[in-house]
Simulated scan of single mutants.
Amino acid sequence: MMQFTDWDILRNLLLAARWTVLLSLIAFASGGLVALLLTFMRISKNPVLSAFVKGYVELFQGTPLLMQLFVTFFGLSLIGIDVSAWSAAIIGLTLFTSAFLCEIWRGCIESLPKGQWEASRTLGLSFFQTMRYVILPQALTVAIAPTVGFSVQVVKGTALTSIIGFVELTKAGTMLNNATFQPFKVFALVAALYFLLCFPLSLYSKHLEKKLNVTG
């Protein structure tokens, strides 16, 4: 049996943590772009678009992320579309992230006084001009803290991609445990690395909330 030193275990976990970070960044960025489009559709006056986004959000918020990853990875294969674990992880996390960010941003926009919209219409601004010059700059300030806070959920959500074969931090921990038979040591290090990734984001989110409350 191959012998692993403590450094070997930590080094392999750190290498796998790179993929956790990269997957989190890609999922958060792509999910944010999709969420921005969905948010515009959700608050539009078009009832069809609004109903579609509402159903989309309820679907991905109301089902487990694990099931979404299974459907993405295995479901697409059933209809003849072969996807790698990497691609399935990105698609699944993007859909999951976009649904939650859409609701966060919609709530931030709707929290603004209705007078902002009325004043914009009085000035003759179109919907997109109102969003660009009046609503979004104000909503952005409100949305920063909860958006950063949600990024913690995205990082932790990457752990579920191990189920479909994507080798990130949790999957690497499982593989190392199978090789070393030292579950306490291996998964204690895995938990410590997740903590080091998530705790700064949580602190920054709380800092932003306090700062914005004081400023407000």
Rank of each mutant, 00 (worst) to 15 (best):
M41C: 09
Y56H: 10
I43Y: 08
F60Y: 15
Y56C: 13
M41P: 06
K54N: 08
V71G: 03
L36Y: 15
S44F: 00
A51Y: 11
V71H: 02
I43S: 05
T63D: 04
E58M: 13
A35Q: 06
S44E: 00
M67W: 14
Q68C: 09
F70S: 03
Y56M: 14
T39A: 15
K45A: 13
P47Y: 07
F60N: 02
G62V: 06
E58W: 15
K54G: 04
P64Y: 06
V71N: 03
K54M: 10
F70I: 13
L38S: 00
L37E: 00
M41Q: 01
N46Y: 13
F60S: 02
A35C: 10
G62W: 00
L69W: 05
L38A: 04
V71L: 15
F70M: 08
M67K: 08
V57K: 01
S50Q: 07
Q68P: 09
L38N: 08
S44A: 02
L59G: 05
F70K: 07
N46Q: 12
F40A: 09
L38T: 00
L49Y: 14
T63V: 11
L59E: 03
T63F: 14
L69E: 02
Q61L: 03
V71R: 05
I43A: 10
K45P: 03
P47W: 09
L69Q: 05
V48S: 12
E58N: 09
L65G: 04
K45Q: 11
T39D: 05
Q61D: 00
T39P: 10
A51P: 01
G62R: 06
F52W: 14
L49M: 14
L66E: 03
T39G: 12
A51L: 11
G55F: 14
R42G: 02
A35M: 07
K45E: 11
F40Y: 11
A35P: 06
S50I: 05
M41Y: 07
Y56G: 11
F70A: 04
L69M: 13
V48A: 15
V57N: 00
L49W: 15
L49D: 07
Q61N: 00
F52R: 11
E58S: 14
S50R: 10
G55D: 11
Y56W: 14
I43N: 04
K54T: 11
P47G: 04
A51R: 15
L37R: 02
T39N: 04
G62Q: 02
P47C: 08
L65D: 05
K45R: 15
L66R: 06
K45N: 13
A35I: 07
Y56P: 08
F70E: 02
L37V: 15
P64E: 07
R42A: 11
L36N: 06
F40T: 05
V53F: 06
L66F: 13
G62A: 08
V71I: 14
Q61A: 01
F40L: 14
R42V: 01
L38M: 02
F40E: 05
F60L: 10
T39M: 15
F60E: 02
F52T: 13
L66A: 12
G55R: 09
L37T: 04
G62Y: 01
